[in-house]
Design a protein around this nucleic acid. Structure first.
Length: 200
DNA sequence: CATGGGATTGACT
DNA sequence: GTCAATCCCATGC
């Protein structure tokens, strides 16, 4: 399995967010298929990069293909992939995975009786399941401890569902959330009756 | 220097 | 459905 190269991330963040659905995140013996992403860009107020270059956003404004890991609500670690050329301040939030490898290890970290679809169905859940902590902020996704891999060729192409991002209060209207349509491993079920889907 | 607000989750009514 | 936990850091005085 080959890791995505740096050029993959050195593109518009929306394109990367779309293309990451179906890719694999691997850390140690645990891995999962990405089924949900969100794009964030310095030009819109929901992004941490909106405030400009500060100690907090150094990683976001750095080179693409690097992990941006930050603490959310004082409790959870959230994993992002830094995108676009250095200086642009853009990243894709990984919001949910379909567990692939090391599922027993995930249950040790998340709870022995946890259902499969609850192991990684949220941005804070998947970092706990894969043991991704704040110390991995700034590490390479190309040749660092966390690897993002291209989809296996045998895997059927996923249909993409597109909609507004979750859990934000600013720029709520932007349809910058991308899900594998019909997946039972996403963080929140898709609004019923939503037809705004397109091919991957 | 004090304050307020989260890109969430899990427990509880 | 509601709500607390918990802490870094950006902002404003």
């Amino acid at each position: 399995m080959t890791a995505l190269d740096r050029a993959f991330y050195d593109r518009p963040v929306l394109a990367v967010a779309r293309d990451l659905v179906g890719c694999v995140v691997r850390h140690g013996a645990t891995a999962g298929v990405i089924v949900e992403t969100e794009a964030y860009h310095h030009s819109e107020p929901a992004s941490h990069a909106y405030v400009g270059l500060t100690p907090r956003t150094v990683t976001l404004y750095g080179p693409p293909g690097v992990a941006y890991v930050y603490r959310s609500y004082g409790i959870h670690a959230l994993l992002n992939a830094v995108c676009e050329p250095e200086g642009e301040g853009a990243a894709v939030l990984i919001r949910a995975l379909e567990p692939l490898d090391g599922i027993a290890q995930m249950r040790v970290r998340r709870g022995a009786h946890m259902r499969l679809e609850d192991l990684c169905s949220g941005p804070g859940k998947l970092t706990q399941a894969l043991a991704v902590g704040l110390e991995l902020n700034g590490t390479s996704l190309v040749d660092g401890p966390i690897r993002f891999e291209a989809p296996v060729a045998a895997r059927p192409e996923v249909e993409l569902a597109v909609g507004p991002r979750i859990g934000i209060t600013k720029a709520v209207e932007l349809p910058w959330r991308f899900c594998a349509a019909g997946s039972r491993h996403v963080s929140r079920p898709w609004p019923p009756g939503h037809r705004d889907t397109l091919a991957a």
